[in-house]
Write a protein that binds this DNA or RNA. Structure first.
Length: 275
DNA sequence: AGCCCATCCTGTCCGC
DNA sequence: TGCGGACAGGATGGGC
């Protein structure tokens, strides 16, 4: 669910409601969020009375910084949700953490059906170290020369796997990689380093326009994605290939959309329009 | 270096 | 209506 545009939408909603707020308390409802990936070192007690200074996004990661130097590092993975809801609403069994605030009747909930996501309590330097070592550059901040250079540096990788690799470029997931490659007219299994200059240009443009448009439409709601205030996105109405196996291509109106496993993920493409 | 696969979880959907 | 298997927006680690 949550790729760069969805995470951006969630963060924008949280920022406007929560920046400057003082924490009343942070409570974990599940003993473990994710056995493998959680690396919390701080006790939830540390956050009591601290002020939220800033909330932002890096790739698909969400970062909260608080007064006193502590922070939260959050990843929604496949089914994670981060949203504000009335405190009196009873949390269900998939709600793993809640944070309440002084002078606010709503509280922040972290909910994740599959428990792949994490919400780690860490000091800011540790968060920044992790984010910078684990993530490549932001796709919307790359110019053409940098983008081209980056393609060349991992040139043997299939372009689909390249786009999905967070260490190379941060924030693109399975839906947007397919939508980007379709609009660029490039087959997902092409080696990244073998694209012509014209294709590199098309790919760069498609990447930015798809991400920007998706942010503008507040993300894609495939099954149950909702933003910080429970609103659905509308970019799913603009999907041209994702989950359209067997249906006619919306560009050539002739070929059927194909589905193949590439980079370990279902990949949708038009065999005529993408070369 | 890069690919495929299994794995962490729970829920849903589809075919029999 | 039940049951088993495949699959799902992510990411990692092992083996080849």
């Amino acid at each position: 669910m949550p790729e760069l545009p969805e995470v951006e939408t969630v963060v924008a909603g949280l920022r406007s409601r929560l920046e400057g707020r003082r924490v009343r308390e942070l409570v974990f409802l599940s003993p473990h969020l994710s056995r493998k990936q959680s690396f919390s070192v701080l006790s939830p007690e540390v956050y009591r009375g601290k002020k939220i200074e800033r909330i932002w996004r890096r790739g698909k990661m969400i970062i909260f910084s608080f007064s006193g130097g502590c922070g939260l590092l959050i990843h929604l993975k496949m089914t994670g949700q981060l949203y504000l809801c009335p405190s009196e609403q009873f949390p269900d069994k998939h709600t793993h953490a809640r944070m309440t605030f002084s002078g606010l009747k709503e509280e922040l909930r972290f909910r994740d059906i599959r428990k792949f996501g994490f919400l780690d309590c860490l000091r800011m330097p540790e968060i920044l170290r992790r984010v910078n070592s684990e993530l490549g550059p932001e796709p919307l901040a790359l110019n053409l020369a940098e983008f081209r250079d980056l393609l060349g540096r991992h040139g043997r990788k299939k372009i689909k796997a390249w786009l999905l690799d967070q260490k190379i470029i941060a924030g693109i997931g399975n839906i947007y990689s397919d939508e980007i490659l379709f609009r660029a007219g490039i087959k997902p299994d092409r080696p990244a380093g073998e694209l012509s200059l014209d294709e590199v240009r098309k790919l760069s443009r498609a990447m930015k326009s798809v991400l920007r448009k998706a942010i503008e439409l507040k993300g894609s709601s495939i099954s149950d994605y909702v933003d910080a205030s429970g609103e659905k996105g509308r970019f799913q109405q603009k999907h041209l290939v994702y989950d359209r196996e067997g249906q006619p291509c919306l560009r050539c109106r002739k070929s059927a959309i194909r589905r193949e496993k590439i980079a370990g993920r279902s990949s949708f493409f038009c065999p005529s329009c993408q070369r």
